[in-house]
């Protein structure tokens, strides 16, 4: 297997809240290979956003409290780099885009002003002679807008965020994120606020960036369809753990973990006549006092007696596929 660009290892993170310690992440392991896209999928409260926030040092501590683990980017642990290095990595190595572009665009400045500012800020770590001046930065901004297929970039660059549609704003945000030529793009629910036909355009753009520019992408979403459409690998998260991890082809055709199966049986398929849906009864466990055994035990239709007490370990039912479930460690007899 190729050497991963980003690797998260045994990542544990707590939030110290008023009501006690919230065990948000418990031993997350993930990796992204250069030029590939990884989808992280899960429901509210599964920890999918929290997992990637600290890749760019975006979680304030306190309340966040990293218990263990490392986030290795090209061998460098991002949990332990200093502010200056993190500044350099943000934008020029790793960039992030979010669900609601409007929150990240300042309504009183034009698109161009904000992009030029971002570009100028990114090159602070470069030697003086390599830096672009304002005019060059603007040219670069226009080129980036062209790359994300914003129509008429020379004209649009002088418009204000509220004059653009939701889809165009997301394109602008992607252009801004890519202006420092990062290797990895983290997209947190980038299409959730968009209409279906516009979502398709943005997904198309992300797929293009991966295929043509060799960008690596981590895509966080609650929509299984979005992951299935544009990702190479997928990590399914539940209650702060990655419960299943594998290639999209594998996970969607042969889900291993009962939670993944449950999710897939919960969504109606737009391309097929209706079959009955099962849903997943019950609730997310309270992560202030997480269950002793498997975190999915209470809701699992296939639970065994030992799932109550013994937390499952990652097992590899087949090459490249991982599931956090006793069912597979059982089969292979390596529990």
């Amino acid at each position: 297997m190729e050497k991963p660009l980003l690797e998260i290892r045994d990542y544990r993170l707590n939030f110290n809240t008023f009501d006690g310690v919230y065990h948000a992440l418990d031993g997350v392991n993930l990796s992204v290979v250069a030029g590939q896209s990884l989808g992280i999928v899960g429901e509210t409260g599964c920890g999918k956003s929290v997992t990637v926030r600290n890749v760019l040092g975006l979680l304030p501590s306190p309340p966040a409290d990293v218990i263990s683990g490392e986030i290795l980017y090209r061998g460098k642990d991002l949990l332990r780099v200093d502010q200056k290095e993190m500044q350099r990595i943000r934008g020029s190595e790793i960039a992030m885009i979010f669900q609601d572009p409007m929150t990240y665009l300042n309504p009183v400045f034009s698109i161009g002003t904000q992009m030029v500012d971002a570009i100028m800020a990114q090159q602070k770590s470069l030697p003086r002679e390599q830096r672009k001046n304002k005019r060059e930065a603007r040219q670069h901004a226009i080129a980036m807008l062209e790359k994300v297929h914003l129509p008429n970039p020379e004209k649009q660059i002088d418009r204000y965020p509220h004059e653009l549609s939701g889809g165009m704003r997301q394109r602008v945000l992607i252009a801004m994120a890519l202006s420092g030529a990062p290797k990895l793009l983290i997209a947190d629910e980038p299409t959730t606020a968009l209409d279906v036909t516009i979502q398709a355009q943005i997904l198309d753009l992300i797929a293009e960036l991966v295929e043509d520019m060799g960008l690596s992408v981590i895509l966080i979403t609650h929509d299984l369809g979005v992951v299935a459409k544009i990702c190479d690998r997928v990590a399914v998260m539940y209650a702060g753990q990655v419960v299943e991890y594998g290639s999209v082809d594998d996970v969607f055709t042969r889900p291993r973990h009962p939670y993944t199966e449950g999710l897939l049986r919960s969504i109606p398929h737009p391309g097929r006549p209706p079959e009955s849906l099962s849903g997943i009864p019950g609730f997310l466990p309270n992560l202030l006092s997480p269950p002793k055994g498997c975190r999915f035990f209470e809701r699992c239709p296939k639970a065994l007696e030992k799932c109550r007490e013994t937390p499952p370990r990652i097992s590899r039912p087949e090459k490249g596929a991982e599931a956090l479930c006793h069912l597979y460690s059982e089969e292979r007899g390596d529990a």
Partner: peptide
């Protein structure tokens, strides 16, 4: 335009 929850879809298909 609706992405399907299944493997093996073509990635680059924005219909509109």
């Amino acid at each position: 335009a609706v992405p399907l929850p299944e493997a093996g879809q073509s990635r680059r298909t924005a219909p509109l």
